[in-house]
Amino acid sequence: MPRITAEEVRVVAHLARLSLTDEEVRLFTQQLDTILDYVQQLQRLKTESVSPTTHVLPLANVLRPDQITPSLDPETVAALAPQRKGRFIQVPKIIETEPG
């Protein structure tokens, strides 16, 4: 049984905001299936009593003082953008007011 279906690949592509061609969906379904099959080897290990490592260094409490440092020139910021209007960054008209 495949580990991932074309339908799941499409859902993931939507989450990642990638539009895929049918050919890409087919290819990724097959390639991701191979990779997911390979990583199944991790299921062999007993990990119940192992704690996860998210940071390799034992650093903690790294803070910066609450001081204002210079911002960028707003002209520089707007100039980076593919589309701008004045010093705003322009995007296609949004109809909905909530993250999707």
């Binding site: 910066r64 204002i68 210079p70 911002s71 960028l72 910021v77 705003f88």
Partner: peptide, 18 residues
């Protein structure tokens, strides 16, 4: 997470950094 000023009412994108 950065040193840009936290206040209301500045000109657009005037309080931004990388």
């Amino acid at each position: 997470f950065c040193g840009c000023a936290n206040n209301f009412g500045a000109a657009p994108n005037a309080q931004t950094c990388p």
